[in-house]
Amino acid sequence: MTEQPTEGEPIRTGIVGLGKMGISHFAIVNAHPDLELVAVADTNSFLTSAIKRYTKVEVYKDFKRMINEAKLDAVLIATPTRFHFEVARYALERGINVFVEKPFTLTLEEGRALVDLAKQKGVVNQVGFHNHFVGTFAEVRRLVNAQAIGEVYHVTGEAYGQVVTKPKTSTWRSKKSEGGGCLHDYASHVVDLMNWVVGPPVKVLGAHLNSIFSEGVDDAVHAVFEYKNGMSGQLTTNWSDTTYRKMTTRISINGKKGKIIADRQEVRVFLMPGCEVDGYGEGWSIKYITDLQKPVWFYMRGEEYSTQIDTFAHNIKSRNTEGENTFASAYATDEVLDMIQKADRARS
């Protein structure tokens, strides 16, 4: 293990992959008082030239060179999913704290290896499932854990949006081998959220992966889950739904004493007569994101993107390797995605 940054010293940070997420991480890391963005690696010379010209950040084509030369304390990996394993392993082997975008890895073997390696090296490890940092979803988890709606018997997770709306697209997101498809993109977020709130299912009873416009990848994923103690779950995700302006995620939970429906904006809670939990009385109550989201030091497209990086930085400083969204928790999500794929194959 390399030396970890000491108190007060900035955390030397690098980013691998400057796509949509990498660019967003760049801005957030660069604006964070405890992180110092020192290097980025990407093969796209248009972007790296611009960065070289406009900023003081070192630019590399080869991530290995960056990791070897830039004396990093932390690395953020925002490459296509296929490369997550290779880059993360390389960084972990050198004792570097790793944040990797979601989904975690494309195979369970790779995921398991990274979970073990991170543990062995004792470094901070985090995956970009940012819903954990959305105030409304955190409130849902709090309520469920507090038994606000009693014993939960059903959970529904949904996500809709318009990523692929016509037959031909040209990015890695349309290639299964690179980690494209609605399952790894939209559905992974929802499965992770469901896992976070009610725990992982034990079984996927059935699944249907539908290619609406794409060839080779799925545009919609539907699945039915079974949990221990007989609880059921349903997953509905579709990234070819043009009626949604942007990605919209919703989770609904039925319990014996009430029901919770939440999205990024609001939490609606129904409690049966006689039930009451701090701030929520019987009947319907609504809480809005304006009450539930804590402010951030720098805002770029949503508080959750800032908060997850802040959490990563905080965990590095406090040497907390068991924080929010660890590799192990993302691995549990990958296990469900794997079961969904198997259930779909069994069907066809």
Binding site: G19, F46, V163, T165, T169, W172, R173, K246
Partner: peptide, 15 residues
């Protein structure tokens, strides 16, 4: 922004 954000998902940054 959403015009561009949706396009980035579909076409990539250079696209």
């Amino acid at each position: 922004a959403h015009k561009y954000a949706n396009a980035v998902g579909e076409l990539g940054i250079m696209g």
